[in-house]
Amino acid sequence: MLLEPKRRISRRALTVWKISGAITIAISWILAGAAIFFLHIFNGPFWISVLLIGMELISTYLFIFLLPSLKWKRWRYDVRDEEIELQEGIFIVKRTLIPMVRVQHVDTVQGPILRRYQLASVIVNTAATSHEIPALEESEAESLRHFISNLARVADEDV
């Protein structure tokens, strides 16, 4: 279709996503374990437990291995003088164009896991929408924020 944006997000994002996937999955394993425990106590049908474990195994694979790497492969972005372009999405590929003149403000945010890996997300806000570029190198996120906010200021138009 169209030319893909060129820049990729940090390779370490993959690790971060795997960790947060693992946390989610760990919680769901605990819930599934509790469910199986109660099923056992109340003599529930055995096949439900089997099904639960099967589903847990599949989602462990999906959330820790498959989805993060697909997501990482898809994620591209470009920040040009006049616009920002994003590409994301695993099953549905989404391309977004944000003209620089429409950018209202830029934030960088950093959760505990991101900080551990010296990564940060950049959030670009227009008057109507907000867009996240996840898990960039801290320094890159910082310079991107300066770059965008400078350009956005230059191109100050009325909404």
């Binding site: 279709m1 999405g89 549905i92 590929v93 989404k94 391309r95 164009l97 227009t126 109507a128």
Partner: peptide, 8 residues
Amino acid sequence: QSLEVKES
């Protein structure tokens, strides 16, 4: 403000 295209 922004334009989005999607392709599943």
